[in-house]
């Protein structure tokens, strides 16, 4: 049980580190946003799950935090992306191809 929790903690940490690596490596704001948001969200969920294995009696509050992170994180990143687009930050060169309906 504790070993399973530790493994989830490790997986969460690994996703966070990879996401931050993406934050450094990606060429423009929108790609960085993708890397940062996705990795941080899944990393946090994995850490919460790991802690849940260590302390099963905390599950209700951990569930609330997980639901909250899952719901607000994408909203926040969409808001940043929209703000950046409206304030005139162009996607990296060669990526301004646009598919319109």
């Amino acid at each position: 049980m504790n070993l399973l929790g530790d493994i989830f903690l490790l997986v969460g940490g690994a996703f966070m580190a990879l996401g931050s690596l993406g934050l450094m490596r990606m060429p423009d704001l929108y790609n960085r946003l993708q890397a940062g948001t996705k990795a941080a969200t899944l990393g946090t969920i994995a850490v919460l799950l790991g802690i849940g294995f260590h302390h099963p009696d905390w599950w209700t509050k951990l569930l609330v935090i997980a639901g909250f992170v899952l719901f607000t994180n994408p909203v926040g990143s969409s808001t940043i992306a929209r703000a950046a687009l409206k304030s005139g930050i162009e996607p990296v060169r060669g990526s301004n191809r646009k598919v319109e309906s």
Partner: peptide
């Protein structure tokens, strides 16, 4: 996340971004 991790680790950074409606 697995898809993203593979892209980030790959040295050539295989991305082809676009805005889609």
């Amino acid at each position: 996340n697995l898809d993203l991790a593979l892209r980030v680790i790959a040295p050539s950074l295989p991305i082809r971004p676009a805005l889609v409606e």
